[in-house]
């Protein structure tokens, strides 16, 4: 291995575009995470619905997004949605569409597993307490499902944060895209990609620590 002379001045000189890219990455992550938290619960409710067509649509949706690569989903939506549906959103919104649906599919499965771990007797107890189906869902099932699903939801969100880097392929100026641009402009890919990797890492570690914390708290609470 040859001796490499590191020169991080390229980072300090180009701090602003990197931070602008990071802002896009964080926006994408935050918006899609919120979509996934709410959308995942709705899709999960469809999967568990008594109405068969609703179930079929939801299961089809989940399998489609779980069983194709996120990169293909982003590219497919970017090229095919304008063509088939005659609409063209800003690429940023296309990316939200793709990543939002992707995490919705994964979160739906996390919610489903959590809801299925709630004992059937809790549903009976809700009826015996006179809670309507809507209130049962809002005040008993949803909070328990969220609580139980938090570790998996957080893990999915960490995955989402990493996956936002894929949108660079369709020229959205996120952290990865800014890094790539700088690397080709400055011929310093090693410093730049190392820095980019470190930023993703530094953002993800607290989230992944939070997973462990929640798991411990859950175990003590639900024991």
């Amino acid at each position: 291995m040859g001796r490499y002379t590191w020169d991080f001045s390229v980072i300090t000189a180009n701090w602003d575009p990197l931070m602008a890219g990071l802002a896009v990455t964080l926006q994408l992550t935050a918006i899609c995470a919120v979509i996934g938290l709410i959308g995942g619960f709705l899709v999960c409710q469809m999967v568990m619905s008594r109405i068969a067509p609703l179930r079929w649509v939801a299961i089809g949706f989940i399998e489609l997004f779980r069983c194709t690569p996120a990169l293909v989903q982003i590219i497919w939506i970017f090229y095919c949605v304008p063509y088939f549906f005659g609409v063209f959103f800003d690429p940023f919104y296309m990316a939200i569409l793709a990543l939002g649906m992707n995490i919705t599919a994964f979160n739906a499965e996390a919610y489903r597993a959590a809801i299925q771990s709630i004992p059937a007797s809790h549903y009976d107890a809700c009826t015996a307490l006179g809670l309507s189906p809507l209130k049962k869902t809002l005040f008993v099932i949803l909070p328990q499902a969220v609580l139980m699903a938090i570790p998996v939801l957080l893990t999915n969100t960490i995955g989402l944060l990493q996956q936002t880097s894929l949108v660079a392929i369709v020229a959205i100026a996120d952290l990865m895209y800014e890094g790539k641009t700088l690397a080709t402009q400055t011929y310093r890919p090693i410093e730049i990609y190392t820095t980019v990797a470190f930023i993703y890492f530094a953002l993800s570690v607290p989230l992944s620590q939070a997973v462990g914390l929640f798991e411990r708290r859950l175990r003590s609470r639900l024991a």
Binding site: P119, S121, H122, D124, A125, A128, L129, G130, L131, S132, K135, F139, V140, P143, Q144, L147, R221, L222
Partner: peptide
């Protein structure tokens, strides 16, 4: 009609007080 079950069926995400006042408030 009120009912009590074999396996308690208290809601684990709520405190004792939270379990008691849930139905009076929400239902």
């Amino acid at each position: 009609v009120g009912m009590v079950f074999q396996h308690y069926t208290l809601f684990p995400h709520l405190t004792v007080l939270g379990n008691l006042i849930l139905a009076p408030m929400r239902a």
